[in-house]
């Protein structure tokens, strides 16, 4: 299976797009070698701004650049790009639908070593709550590339979650990416599994396990967390015996909340695989944290069994 690092893909893609589009600018808060916009800085030194370690100012400055016609990419770890400057995103960016793209790098638990302060488990909830904000989470490197391009083409605020680590490709190179459109990664008839980010891969693993047991899982990549196509979600659930959501995020305010709201009033049983209402912590590797917080194929299998019991 081909592995790709989404942040490297992001950094390279931004350079490619930057060559075609002079309006693209990037801002960093002393982490460009982690966010990989160091590549953009190297290619376009005039269009890259080192903003020092000050994320709140960085977001509002980006708004100013965007108000003057730039497509401004704000880069930092998700906790610092989405969490710390929340009010700046709200007032300087979202109320005016300003063309700023917020990159939530090292998202979820992917910054495994740095502990709770650096692990963004609530960024999707915060960003989804903001009117005018589009919230994206790519399932792999292939989708990251298309998503960044879509964000450039879309006029308005966008938040993109970017994982820190290498993950396997799961999406189809030929599949067109469209903001708002969930895509079926694996067909199945018994249970519909909605996931985003790296969790799409985990859902596919669970589907392989369950297939051997005679249960078929439909795996859906909900890479746009806002706006969500309600009709499409309902259709994907229409003949399912159960629904499972899987997300590398707190159970509050993310995919589970979104799908539960759409499927309200439905009699279809639903289970959620997510981080419970708790912060992360340091670990020596990423997978160890996913096991600890219940975000593995085994946890998805458990959820399937719970529904079929």
């Amino acid at each position: 299976m081909n592995m790709q690092n989404c942040r490297t893909v992001y950094g390279k893609t931004l350079v490619e797009l930057g060559m075609q589009n002079e309006r693209i600018v990037a801002l960093d808060a002393d982490l460009c070698k982690s966010t990989m916009t160091c590549l953009f800085e190297e290619a376009f030194p005039d269009r890259h701004f080192e903003m020092g370690i000050g994320e709140q100012n960085m977001v509002s400055v980006a708004a100013g650049l965007a108000l003057s016609g730039k497509i401004a990419f704000v880069n930092s770890f998700a906790v610092f790009s989405a969490g710390r400057p929340y009010d700046q995103i709200r007032v300087s960016v979202c109320i005016g639908k300003v063309n700023v793209k917020i990159i939530g790098s090292s998202c979820g638990l992917s910054d495994f070593g740095d502990g709770a302060t650096h692990q963004s488990i609530e960024d999707v909830a915060i960003m989804r709550a903001l009117p005018n904000m589009t919230v994206l989470s790519p399932a792999d490197g292939i989708e990251t590339r298309k998503m960044v391009q879509a964000a450039v083409e879309y006029d308005g605020p966008v938040y993109i979650r970017i994982l820190r680590n290498e993950i396997p490709d799961v999406t189809d190179e030929k599949q067109e990416f469209e903001i708002g459109k969930p895509t079926v990664i694996r067909e199945g008839k018994d249970i519909t599994v909605f996931a985003h980010g790296y969790m799409v891969y985990k859902a596919l693993k669970a589907a392989e396990i369950m297939e051997k047991k005679g249960v078929s899982l439909k795996v859906v990549n909900v890479s746009t967390l806002k706006p969500i196509d309600e009709k499409a979600i309902k259709k994907l659930c229409s003949s399912a015996k159960g629904i499972i959501t899987v997300e590398e995020h707190t159970i509050i305010g993310g995919l589970a909340s979104a799908i539960a709201y759409i499927m309200r009033g439905s009699a279809i049983p639903m289970e959620a695989v997510a981080i419970q209402d708790t912060f992360g912590q340091s670990a020596l590797d990423y997978e160890q944290l996913l096991v600890h917080y219940g975000l593995t194929e085994k946890d998805i299998v458990k959820a399937v069994k719970k529904i079929l019991k």
């Binding site: 100012n57 509002s60 400055v61 980006a62 708004a63 100013g64 650049l65 108000l67 003057s68 300087s92």
Partner: peptide
Amino acid sequence: SVACGIAL
């Protein structure tokens, strides 16, 4: 900050 961005 917004003013700085416009100036840049």
